[in-house]
């Protein structure tokens, strides 16, 4: 553990192996690690870009891939119009490029290895990324803890990993997928045609066989506040709710 924490603090080179346009605003980047590590779903890496004049820009990105021993981590990065690092990834980065990163980092927003009860994941947009790693880790390790995902997106095209999520839902009765589509009518009966609210959070909780013992929420601060207030109103214990808010 100590050794792995030491390694996590060291910068290493990775190589871009694959780039996929996942949604209009989000691309995924598969990075082959120079020094492979094993992460826990929910952890992030810090990525560092260096300009010819020595200027460096650092950002944290959640890992979308599960720990699968492949030596590759997948990041899914939303292009922020005013961003400095995300436009580089979207507009400049190419297969074969070297990217400096370190990790795995973060010791709080972590998939529970011994879940005490059902898991409730709530995300918006690219906030799905650490939650997707959890869904994938659960699947890779053939875990059967009942798990619900409530995912908000503007349109169906903006749902990250949509096909994979629907395939998992089809295949696995222990996984419940609920989409909140805010700017068009959803096509599935179980989805919602509105922004997240407390009633929606409470309704998705009833789609789980028991009260969730672990809740993970990732999105903008406003989204996270609505989701967590809904979960608290539904009677969930604040201590079971972990949040990650992006921006900055």
């Amino acid at each position: 553990m100590i050794e792995s924490a030491v390694q996590a603090a060291l910068w290493q080179k990775s190589v871009v192996e694959r780039i996929v346009q996942q949604t209009p605003a989000i691309k995924s980047f598969s990075l082959r690690l120079g020094n492979p590590f094993t992460h826990v779903a929910g952890q992030h890496v810090d990525v560092r870009l260096t300009a010819p004049d020595g200027y460096m820009a650092m950002r944290s990105y959640s890992i979308a891939s599960p720990p699968d021993g492949s030596g590759i981590v997948e990041l899914a990065i939303e292009r922020l119009p005013d961003g400095e690092v995300s436009p580089f990834f979207h507009d400049v980065a190419a297969v074969g490029d070297e990217i400096e990163l370190r990790g795995p980092l973060g010791g709080h927003f972590l998939w529970p290895q011994d879940a005490a009860g059902p898991v409730f994941l709530i995300g918006a947009g690219s906030g799905l990324v650490p939650l997707m790693a959890m869904i994938r880790q659960r699947r890779v390790e053939a875990q059967n803890v009942p798990t619900a995902l409530l995912l908000s997106a503007r349109t169906a095209r903006d749902v990250l990993y949509a096909k994979e999520l629907q395939a998992i839902e089809f295949d696995d009765p222990g996984f419940v997928l609920s989409l909140a589509i805010t700017r068009e009518a959803p096509t599935r009966e179980t989805d919602f045609a509105r922004r997240i609210d407390g009633a929606m959070v409470q309704e998705v909780i009833t789609r789980l066989p028991r009260t969730p013992a672990h809740v993970f929420v990732c999105g903008s601060n406003g989204f996270v506040n609505i989701a967590t207030d809904g979960a608290l109103f539904a009677g969930l214990d604040a201590a079971t709710i972990k949040t990650e808010r992006y921006g900055g």
């Binding site: 080179k13 870009l49 260096t50 300009a51 010819p52 004049d53 200027y55 820009a57 400095e84 580089f88 400049v92 980065a93 490029d97 070297e98 990217i99 400096e100």
Partner: peptide
């Protein structure tokens, strides 16, 4: 390590 194509 300079990142190809990154200028800040």
């Amino acid at each position: 390590m300079v990142t190809r194509g990154f200028t800040g």
